[in-house]
Design a binder for these strands. Structure first.
Lengths: 343, 343
DNA sequence: CTGAAAGCGCTTACAG
DNA sequence: CTGAAAGCGCTTACAG
């Protein structure tokens, strides 16, 4: 491996001067600059980043840690984060980890060698934060999961109000005259620590609350079916739900993929959507607008979620402003998958 | 910041011994181990990774670089790669970069501080490899893009035969009796260096070749429309295509998202799919099986693409085997979006 | 504008 | 089993 020492030797200058050239210092003669650059190019020299970091301890950019890498929803937030940080002239490095991995432990590790200015956590749950986040002192923001009750002064959070949004979706079904409404997806008992458990509980809670507010008791045994967060999961769960409760006229699915799977199942069983049964999803990622029928769903404001998170983080990095916890407005989007019940 | 020196002082042992404990060496007395571990815990000490790497130069795990992070297709390959490397007891770190970023430059950088055993490149194009890959000496594999004509001895590639697969999809349309077939998506003139340009050319070429083999001249002006690789892109392009060529009975879309968008457009214009017009996609990601109509498409063998890539890389890391370039079999999947033309 | 030297936090022969 | 010392590749006062 070729080092700064080699470059110094070959170019005839000292290590110090080579270092200055590498770091684009101005206090170097043009002759030196030119010669040294030439040698660097020739030798294809790359400074050892570890050695630089070791000395500098300079925070370079922002680390984004995404937990659970299968979701289009998270992907689109990430894209917006990239755009927004770019606008501020900041750059980010992104680290994807599995649904069962520990985002806080990952951040601690990353903190060692990348020395970021701050962290953005995308997805996951609050579990690991509660236990380990105290070890992180950099300004951070949790996007998508509420951290207000964790009480860390260097951790902001920006979320959609899952509970209110679920209520809203169910309210739409109710206003169309549906009284027999089922819920699909998530885990009712929210232990297990699996990712997604956080928001699925909130969505289920919001849906049930809205039903009960309207005098409808929700019977989990009969009208609820849990499932994986995928189209296949929705497909299978919808079949079970249909068997248990053939008289349902409306279904609230915890997310869009589940809704899509459910709709397909209903059609495969010769039920018309929305004629025989209405379905709402949750998330409003763009492509559901192309489904047939167009899916009625909740759109989370991806752009605002990303923008506010980035802006807040940068402000806190520069000015040490206190952490905030904010709910971003959502929107119900009409679709062809919801209509009034026939009878 | 608390360093190994502090731990040594507090524990009363030397830096060397502390280092041994940190690295789980066996040649340390139990008393020392215990005491030092205790101090480390108390002080919440984290070894500086940069300093460790600087000395060790030990390659830890495998770096995966994904270019263009919006595609479900790439996501699923990544997932398989994670599974496969996990089975071999290897761990990976994943780096997502934008469609316009330079994956090879990124790899060079990563090589500095993470010191991986090897690289897996996912997506992107061959452009940056041609120019800069000679600077990388680690065993690497390019997944999804053919590198056989680049001639690097440390770069394998595993790809779907895009050209043959496109021919196959078009052959199915032809065998149903379609003669007026349009093509949607990609960039016909393949300069510009934008990602995806590589495979879209191959797919278009394969489709056209099949048509001409069957005596049908393809008129790009009339029967082709380029577009972004998204449902929205497909939607808009389908509208233009329909206007230019209302007599088309079949459409080959360069990927599934485009196909989905096109189908939606046709339905919005009161054309039945497949009654009035048949549509095929490309990729066969799972969720298209839930669309209505189920999409006929090419399924790339995601699992094999990932498995072969990982196995090849590990073999070459351990035994220095030569790089290989392999095409992974694809499969045409029937769907409800293709039928014989009416007239 | 340039160079010699100290030091970043760690690991690892080497000697005991 | 333990410690003193050299060295990893770089940066940065300091002196000239």
């Amino acid at each position: 491996m070729i080092t700064i020492k080699d470059i110094a030797q070959i170019s005839g200058y000292s290590i110090s001067t080579v270092s200055r050239v590498i770091n684009n210092r101005t206090d170097v003669s043009d002759a030196a600059k030119e010669k040294i650059r030439e040698v660097i190019r020739e030798q294809n020299y790359q400074p050892n980043e570890n050695a630089r970091m070791l000395k500098q301890s300079i925070s370079t950019d922002i680390s984004v840690i995404v937990r659970g890498n299968r979701s289009i929803f998270l992907e689109s937030i990430l894209e917006e984060i990239q755009i927004r940080t770019g606008k501020h002239g900041e750059s980010i490095n992104v680290h994807f980890i599995g649904e069962t991995d520990d985002e806080v432990a990952t951040a601690i590790q990353i903190g060692q060698y990348l020395k970021p200015k701050g962290f953005i956590f995308l997805g996951g749950s609050a579990d690991h934060f509660r236990e380990e986040f105290s070890q992180i002192s950099l300004p951070s923001v949790l996007v998508t999961v509420d951290a207000s009750d964790l009480g860390f002064e260097n951790l902001s959070s920006f979320t959609t109000d899952d509970e209110a949004a679920a209520s809203c979706a169910v309210a739409r079904l109710l206003s169309q005259g549906h009284r027999r409404i089922g819920i699909l997806g998530g885990h009712r008992n929210d232990r297990g620590g699996r990712s997604g458990s956080g928001y699925s509980t909130l969505r289920i809670r919001g849906a049930v609350r809205e039903l009960e507010k309207n005098g409808i008791h929700f019977d989990f045994e009969r009208d609820y079916e849990s499932c994986a967060f995928s189209a296949e999961g929705g497909y299978q769960a919808a079949e079970k739900l249909r068997r248990k409760s053939p008289d349902l006229t409306g279904v609230f699915a915890i997310n869009d993929a589940i809704a899509i799977g459910a709709i397909r199942l209903f059609r495969d069983r010769d039920l018309e959507v929305p004629g025989d049964i209405s379905v709402t999803g949750f998330n409003g990622v763009d492509y559901v607008r192309y489904f047939n029928p167009r899916l009625a769903t909740i759109r989370q404001d991806v752009a605002m979620l990303a923008t506010k998170s980035v802006d807040d983080l940068l402000l806190r990095i520069s000015y040490g402003s206190p952490a905030v916890h904010e709910k971003i407005p959502f929107e119900y989007i009409d679709g062809e998958s919801v209509a009034s019940p026939r009878k």
